[in-house]
Amino acid sequence: MIDPLVQWIPRLGLGLIFLLSGLSKLLDREAFRQGLRHYRLLPASLEAPVSVAVPSLELLGALLLLVRPEKGGLLILGLLALFSMAIFWGLGQGGGFNCGCLGGIEEPLSPWLFLRNGLLGLLAVPTLLPATPRPLTAADLVVVGLGSLFVLFAYLGLSLLLANAVRLSELRRS
């Protein structure tokens, strides 16, 4: 049993992250399709359906986290495992391309992305655990709102720092 706050903050934070991730891919579908092509994982005929299916599943995961946290958490863990395998494959192919994790946003493929996916996976764990039933006060709601925003911004900041780290090492080599 965990306190509802410990469950709600990662639950809402993860929901926001996957909402953003899904929307960024759906709004710039062409960029995401090209991102998929770099992985050389799918036949050309499957690129179009997968480029819609992946962000749709991400949005579904974000929605399920709100209404059915265990199902949403499991779906997101599954997606993270799938993404990690794709990244592993991409790195095996030599890497050097945009990960496509956030649509067209520039994020070079690197082993650091496993760390990021691992952290996101850890965030999904509290959604699978039962929470102590206790009424949420107004202060709880404020803390949940601010805490989930913190999770979102920390994720975005970490993603940018990882992208910068790859660029910095390229600059050092040049």
Binding site: E106, V142, V143, L149, G157, L161, A163, N164
Partner: peptide, 24 residues
């Protein structure tokens, strides 16, 4: 004080995000 600290944490994470963006 908890709510104020949370506001500060969110503001700091926003600053971190903006800083990383500028470096990018």
């Amino acid at each position: 004080s908890t709510v104020l600290l949370w506001i500060a944490v969110v503001a700091l994470s926003l600053l971190l995000f903006a800083l990383a963006r500028q470096i990018g």
